[in-house]
Amino acid sequence: MTGADRQRGRRGVRRLLPPVSPWGLLWLTVVWVLLWGSLNVLNLLGGLLVALLVLVLFPLPRVDLHLRVRPLGLLVLLGRFLVDLVRASVEVAWLSVRPGPVATGVVMDLQLATDDPLLQTLTAEMVSLVPGSVVVELDPGSRVLTLHALNVRTRHQAEQVRHKVRAQEARVLRALHPDPASVLDPRRHRNGSRGAGPETTTTQEAP
């Protein structure tokens, strides 16, 4: 058996084996062990078996991730998210229990900076997790995010909400995008927000 033969043989075996990502295997095993709530050999082996079965039987399409994780950016992203979460929760809680007129909201559009669907989704998820803004619609193609913001009455306040969402997106990009500076370039940003699509705001009032 020559070396070339052996190599071909190995590649053949590799082709026969389903493409299982080791990270997926590890993650699913960890989840399995946590679900059982105790770490022992049986759980570990069972978890590996189940993870392998899941990954082989339900293969996911390959996603090409062009991400670069920056620990510092990630830390800023998560820390700021927690602060925003607490602050916005207290605000919305106050709005709902304060005496006087009830709060109303507006529906508004805004233009995201990135084309990457994953980063857009991440931004939208974080925006909708923070109380005070609910994502209504996200069009990945035109990068238009439609959201409903609470307690916005003037154009200035609407602009503030847009600014907040853009800052959120900037934090996501700085944490995960390979080249955030190119996307967040202010010139491109201005062109994008003025030229690519209309940004409008509609308010609604209580009847």
């Binding site: 035109s142 409008t200 509609t202």
Partner: peptide
């Protein structure tokens, strides 16, 4: 469908 523009209510 989104013909009515991105923002039509």
């Amino acid at each position: 469908e989104r013909d009515a523009g991105p923002q039509a209510p």
